[in-house]
């Protein structure tokens, strides 16, 4: 498909057209700092009004993950008043995630691999198959905690159907998949002119000059750097500040560990097996029946998270476990930074 552009003024009409067929979620203004009106806070939510969409958003505490991988998800329903007859609960509806930054698109590709590899998980994949991802490119770093360039998530190769590049009065629109091409049909796009192409080129150049590497080594060496640090005291040192609260896991766009419980109907007619987000930082995560705990020390849990994000997932799937979005650092009361940790261990043996 030839490059196309959409006028900013025509964006709302396109979003409305998408909302007619699908649930559309995107970044909206959540609140404004009372003492500093320019300090706006954004969140991902289902759009009720196309005009609420804020493609100029910067940070969100939580990414769009929950639309694909909800904090609570029902897996199986069964009866208690009769033969249990357990049945799978797989729910999905046509959805568009509109305005997904490159880091979050990369994170979605990681989740796809986690739930799709070996034994596929249709509870996630059915939602994913019914969800279109409209990406939104970044011109400049969103925050000092981010290191997406290092983690290879600034230029994603998958995890989106359309990529939008905002350039002044127009938005550059590139469809990457058949689904993406179908979505763009309802937009009042026009073929890109020579001026548009030059503006696109200028955006790319600015993007390249605005982002800088923050790790003192290449991503491909991160697993080895981590391995070398396994016995370092650095884990105990950082863990001194850790409260094991799990905020890092809650805000991480690639975390997918879960716990499962059976919820019983009030009239005892049946039950539903439900999974919910879990955190490897909580002290009971690796505990077994009888009380043995295989990651009893806070430092071993912290190390496990850092290794999982930087080594295990990467080695097993070729996809990054950390996309460098910086959410865990921003959510951490103790200001533990995965980026600074990966810098700090560069010199450990």
């Amino acid at each position: 498909m030839l490059p196309q552009v959409l006028k900013r003024n025509d964006l709302a009409a396109w979003v409305e057209a998408l909302m007619a067929d699908r649930t559309v979620a995107g970044p909206v203004l959540k609140e404004t700092n009372v003492s500093d009106p320019s300090d706006e806070k954004f969140e991902w939510t289902v759009l009720e009004d196309a005009g609420d969409l804020r493609l100029d958003y910067n940070l969100t505490v939580l990414g769009p993950k929950s639309f694909l991988w909800p904090p609570r998800q029902q897996l199986v329903a069964y009866r208690l008043d009769d033969g249990p007859d357990p049945q799978p609960l797989i729910e999905h509806e046509p959805t568009v995630l509109l305005g997904v930054h490159p880091c979050d698109a990369t994170a979605i590709a990681t989740l796809d691999t986690a739930f799709g590899k070996d034994i596929p998980d249709p509870h996630y994949l059915a939602r994913r198959a019914d969800t279109a991802i409209v990406g939104l490119d970044c011109a400049a770093p969103c925050h000092e905690s981010s290191f997406c360039l290092d983690m290879g998530s600034l230029y994603p190769d998958s995890g989106f159907d359309v990529m939008l590049t905002p350039m002044g009065e127009v938005i550059f629109v590139e469809a990457a998949t058949d689904l993406g091409r179908a979505l763009v049909k309802s937009a009042a796009v026009r073929p890109a002119t020579k001026d548009d192409m030059e503006a696109r080129q200028k955006f790319a150049e600015e993007k390249r000059s605005n982002f800088h590497y923050k790790l003192p080594y290449e991503l491909k060496y991160l697993p080895e750097v981590l391995e070398q640090s396994y016995d370092s005291l650095v884990w105990e040192a950082i863990a001194r500040r850790c409260f094991s609260c799990g905020s890092c896991n809650t805000t991480c766009p690639t975390c997918y560990c879960w716990d499962v419980t059976d919820d019983i109907a009030d009239d005892l007619s049946g039950g539903v097996r439900t999974r919910r987000y879990d955190s490897c930082q909580l002290d009971t995560f690796a505990e077994v029946a009888g009380g043995e705990n295989f990651r009893e020390e806070r430092s071993s849990r912290l190390r496990h998270r850092m290794f999982r994000k930087g080594k295990y997932i990467l080695e097993q799937t070729g996809r990054v476990g950390c996309v460098g979005c910086g959410r865990c650092e921003r959510a951490c009361v103790a200001k533990i930074s995965i980026k600074d940790t990966y810098v700090q261990i560069a010199g450990t043996r």
Binding site: L75, V76, P86, Q87, P88, I90, H92, D112, F115, G116, I119, P120, D121, P122, H123, L125, A126, R128, A129, D130, R273
Partner: peptide, 12 residues
């Protein structure tokens, strides 16, 4: 993704 979406749930 589409093939996996049709897979039998391993949790039943």
């Amino acid at each position: 993704i589409h093939k996996g979406a049709e897979a039998e749930s391993p949790y039943v």
